[in-house]
Design a protein around this nucleic acid. Structure first.
Length: 566
RNA sequence: GGGCGAUUAGCUCAGGGGAUAGAGCGUUGGUCUCCGGAACCAAAGGCCGUGGGUUCGAAUCCCACAUCGCCCGCCA
């Protein structure tokens, strides 16, 4: 029997290895085999090619110029000083120009599976975020129309990023900023008003700047149904502002419903209107005036954002005395800062990228470092059907709404599709592909892996075989290359989450899942889990159970259902 | 004209200083007496947009250029 080798406790293999190399380096320095004064940080990477081991380091190549010796000589000196007291190393090789390749004992990999069993739903979580307060603001669509597919991508990215940040120990607040003030509300009110007049038989032309969508007619219809023609007698301006409030509330309600159907819940809804009402907007501009960032020109007040590298200064108060959208966003971000977040993340459509420098100016003018604000720009979505782009036009009133897409392909497929690509790649979203129930559809591919395992576990149970615990499994029976590949993939999972959190790249989850599902399917097709060999069956049951846990955890982060059957 | 992003297999995209470049789709050819074929295996397919740099080493970093998308308002 091989030793269980659990002396390593909960320490991660990478950290163990780093310690080993560090000790070897200081040993070399003591013995005079190396002349460096300071031991540099050790980079450990996982080589692409299996023959290059589980981890490799370029440390010898980095030291070469300082040591004035060949990297390979340095590497062998370091290798000779290695003491592997926990017995995690199978071998160390020096290869290529001077890489040190480390091969980890298979026992170590196999024994690490127990951690997944013990942690269960918590496997993959960490405390790396140290409880720091993070605000993620996303969607924040104006309540002037239904959410479209671009908002959907922002919603998915924001929601899953928030899940990832939570998983690694950040204290996350998800927030939606409602632009329920300003010109657009007036326009909204007017749009409804004109439709209202139409419905009551008045022949007036709908101004081109008005919102043209069918949903405006619906709202006008509601008003007619409830109140008839009584608004015809009131002054237009009063009616328009009433209608604006009514429409905004109604649209916002729809937005909330669509988001909820999409699996997205916000912790805080901030309203621009309340910032106006509580004078926060004028306070914020006053504050900037006092700090000397505001000047007057052509009757308007300007924020000197060029002080912070913006290409031109920006108006905060128009010559007519009305604050701009920028002014209210200043107030909103001042409010964010006052709430003492350690990090602020804004998720915007890439068409707003020109706004980034001025927002960073705000943060700095208010005395913070611009690094605490992270603006994630999400590129646009091309809605496709069978490879053809679906026309999209708000002007014509034809919407490709999030709601329609979710109804057509389902929440799971929609969320998954939005997260398949890096945020700074444009995304082709093919509706027909998202509905397909075969291997062309990545969502099904991953969900199927989960269902497949459940099916095996179910069948095993019917045969009186419960999934055993680690102590009852001959873990070293998991000896096939595919099994070790699968195990290593499972053990990579915590790093994937952490990497995704620090890089703010939620799409790493789908990339990882696709990989894991593929390894499971491949293993399954080549080998039988349930067989006449009972000890082997138990070991393999244990393995697939661990795969199931990781699939489930990762899908949970994505907000995608992990089906037992499909 | 300026800014941001993209440019990797026929298509859609991963990979963001390391050793022999990755996946899915598509193409071609295989795998069902066997736990879910919604799956698997194999083959073909690449000057990583172009040209310069930086270094032991570049698809990756820097500078030009080209092409595509999006932005450049006292709109939001």
């Amino acid at each position: 029997m091989t030793s269980r080798g659990r002396t390593t406790g909960k320490m991660k293999i990478k950290d163990i290895l780093r310690d080993i190399i560090n000790s070897a380096l200081s040993d070399c320095v003591q013995k005079g085999a190396l002349s460096i004064k300071v031991i540099p940080a050790i980079e450990l990477e996982t080589p692409k090619i299996q023959e290059h081991g589980d981890f490799s380091t370029n440390i010898a190549m980095i030291l070469a110029s300082e040591e004035k010796r060949s990297p390979r000589l340095i590497a062998s000196a370091i290798a000779e000083s290695i003491i592997d007291k926990d017995n995690v190393l199978a071998k160390v090789e020096i290869a290529g120009p001077g890489f040190m390749n480390f091969f980890i004992n298979n026992d170590h990999w196999r024994n690490s599976l127990e951690e997944i069993e013990i942690l269960g739903d918590s496997y993959g979580k960490s405390k790396a975020g140290e409880g720091k307060k993070v605000q993620v603001e996303f969607v924040s669509a104006n309540p002037t129309g239904p959410l479209h597919i671009g908002h959907g991508r922002g919603a998915a990215v924001g929601d899953v990023l928030a899940n990832i940040l939570k998983a690694v120990g950040y204290d996350v607040v998800k927030e939606y900023y409602i632009n329920d003030a300003g010109n657009q509300m007036e326009t909204l009110g007017r749009s409804v008003f004109f439709r209202y007049l139409h419905l009551l038989g008045r022949d007036v032309a709908l101004p081109s700047e008005c919102y043209q969508g069918e949903y405006i007619v619906d709202i006008a219809n509601d008003i007619v149904a409830k109140h008839g023609d009584r608004y015809l007698d009131e002054p237009d301006s009063k009616v328009i502002s009433n209608f604006a409030v009514y429409a905004a509330d109604s649209i916002l309600e729809g937005i909330k419903e669509d988001l909820s159907d999409f699996g997205v819940k916000f912790d805080v809804w901030s309203s621009e209107k309340t910032f106006f009402e509580s004078n926060k907007i004028s306070e914020a501009t006053e504050d900037l005036k006092k700090k000397g960032y505001i000047y007057q020109k052509d009757g308007a007040f300007w924020f000197r954002t060029t002080d912070f590298g913006d290409e031109k200064d920006r108006v905060v108060i128009r010559a007519n005395g009305q604050p701009t959208y920028f002014a209210s966003d200043i107030a909103y971000h001042k409010d964010k800062l006052e709430r003492k977040f350690d990090m602020i993340i804004n998720i915007w459509g890439a068409d707003h990228h020109g706004y980034v420098p001025r927002m960073e100016s705000v943060i700095q003018a208010l005395g913070e470092k611009k690094e605490m604000l992270n603006i994630l720009l999400v590129q646009l979505v091309n809605l496709m059907r069978n490879g053809q782009q679906v026309a999209m036009s708000t002007r014509s009133g034809e919407f490709d709404t999030l709601k329609e897409v979710v109804m057509e392909v389902g929440k799971d497929a929609a969320r998954y599709f939005f997260l398949m690509r890096s945020s700074d790649s444009q995304l082709d979203f093919d509706l027909e592909l998202a509905k397909k129930q075969n291997n062309e559809n990545p969502v099904y591919y991953v969900q199927y892996a989960h269902a497949r395992i459940c099916s095996i576990l179910r069948l095993a149970q019917e045969q009186g075989l419960n999934t055993p615990g680690f102590e009852d499994v001959g873990i070293d029976l998991l000896n096939l290359p595919e099994e070790l590949t699968l195990i290593k993939q499972l053990l990579k999972y915590p790093e994937v989450i952490e990497g995704g959190a620090f890089a703010l790249e939620p799409h790493r989850m789908t990339v990882y899942l696709n990989d894991l599902a593929g390894k499971l399917h491949s293993y399954y097709n080549k080998n039988r889990v349930l067989s006449n060999d009972l000890p082997l069956t138990r070991a393999r049951l244990y393995l697939v159970k661990m795969v199931k846990i990781v699939l489930n955890n990762a899908l949970h982060i994505l907000g995608v259902y992990a089906p037992e059957k499909m």
